[in-house]
Amino acid sequence: MSYAKELAAAKKAVSLAARLSQKVQKSLSETDIWTKSDSSPVTVADYGSQAIVNLVLEKELHPEPLSLVAEEDSADLRKIGAESVLARITELVKDTLATDESCGASPLSSDDVLSAIDRGKSEGGPKGRHWILDPIGGTRGFIRGEQYAVGLALLVEGKVVLGVMACPRLPLESTAFNIQKSSPGKVGCLFFAAIGSGTYAQSLNGLSPPEKVQVSSVDDPEKATFFESYHTPVPFHSSIAKKLGIKAFPIRVNSQTKYAALSRGDGEVYLRFTRKAESIWNHAAGSVVVSEAGGIVSDAEGNPLDFSKGKYLSYKTGIIATTQKLMPRLLKAVRESMEEEKFNNL
């Protein structure tokens, strides 16, 4: 089945959301950032991005019913004292939509923006169609002026069928470099994939044509590099890398940018082992971008990730993404490391 209409709408929505985020990141102030009840940071860009994606999808896909599973809600924005922040978000959304001729000048009110944000409260599930959105993936990196991503995917009958990711700080040139901070030169990439059609990348500003990308052809683990989140180094990851013979230091970066970089061969392995529940919006777009580029995304036992159980992934122990060539040896290294960890904890 072709998803051309849905893919076009998703590309427009993500591109505009990225445009808003770029504007905010350039002039980020303390009043643009605050802490949610779970102690994680959130910015005006997170809310503005979510509102824009919903508004664009509704306009482009009308009259189809829209189910959106997204990270944010408007509860904090409805509290007394948040009026100035809400006004800023509303202006950001209006100004960004006005930059696109097909959207035109919008008479949006603050209530319209609040409603657009809250339409991301769907629970998803195995039936029907559900859009899955990470409005600003890697908020901590975004705040520091580093890598972040806007990720949007479509789930149909429990399967991810397309994904679009904007990586506004990712250099256009595909090389094996350190992407923890933006490199000089041209930056800003848009990745997109639809099931059975491959993965493509182009400049975020749309000035370059899409080019098909493929995962790395490296088949020697000693020559591979791996990605992990930009947090405290995970000893378990190091154990796996050592068993594979990987000698390069890990590329640490927040957000689904890791999936994007892996899909075009900037590295060969992505490891994510954590005791926390994993939200589907953190992996949905990235999983299809990597798989359509010839890679594999699975849990620690080699099973495909299950996005049909609601807002959280159903998976065994951890998440790994790599190439077809390296997957057998990676799974072996994961199993051995897990057995050693169990023995050491006895």
Score class of each variant (00 low, 15 high):
146 E>F: 14
148 Y>W: 15
148 Y>K: 14
149 A>K: 12
151 G>R: 11
151 G>H: 14
153 A>L: 11
154 L>M: 08
155 L>Q: 15
156 V>T: 09
156 V>K: 13
157 E>M: 12
158 G>Q: 15
159 K>G: 00
160 V>C: 12
160 V>G: 06
160 V>E: 08
161 V>N: 05
161 V>S: 08
163 G>H: 05
165 M>R: 05
167 C>I: 04
168 P>T: 04
169 R>P: 07
170 L>F: 07
171 P>T: 13
172 L>G: 14
172 L>K: 09
173 E>Y: 08
174 S>K: 10
175 T>I: 12
176 A>K: 13
178 N>R: 05
179 I>M: 06
180 Q>M: 09
184 P>L: 08
185 G>M: 03
185 G>Q: 07
186 K>N: 08
188 G>K: 03
188 G>Q: 02
188 G>T: 01
190 L>P: 04
190 L>M: 13
190 L>D: 12
191 F>C: 10
192 F>H: 09
192 F>E: 04
193 A>G: 04
193 A>C: 01
198 G>N: 05
201 A>I: 06
202 Q>A: 10
205 N>Q: 07
205 N>C: 08
205 N>Y: 03
205 N>M: 04
206 G>F: 01
207 L>W: 00
210 P>K: 03
210 P>A: 00
210 P>M: 00
211 E>V: 09
212 K>P: 12
212 K>Q: 15
213 V>Y: 05
216 S>M: 01
217 S>N: 08
218 V>M: 00
219 D>Q: 05
219 D>R: 01
220 D>A: 07
220 D>T: 11
221 P>A: 02
225 T>Q: 10
225 T>A: 10
226 F>I: 02
226 F>V: 00
226 F>A: 00
228 E>T: 14
229 S>P: 05
231 H>P: 02
233 P>S: 13
235 P>Q: 02
238 S>I: 04
239 S>P: 00
239 S>T: 08
240 I>M: 04
241 A>E: 01
242 K>T: 14
243 K>M: 13
245 G>N: 00
246 I>N: 02
248 A>W: 02
248 A>V: 03
250 P>L: 11
251 I>F: 07
251 I>C: 06
252 R>G: 09
252 R>N: 07
253 V>M: 15
253 V>I: 15
255 S>W: 02
260 A>R: 05
261 A>H: 06
263 S>R: 10
263 S>E: 11
264 R>F: 03
264 R>I: 05
264 R>M: 06
265 G>Q: 06
266 D>N: 04
267 G>I: 13
267 G>R: 10
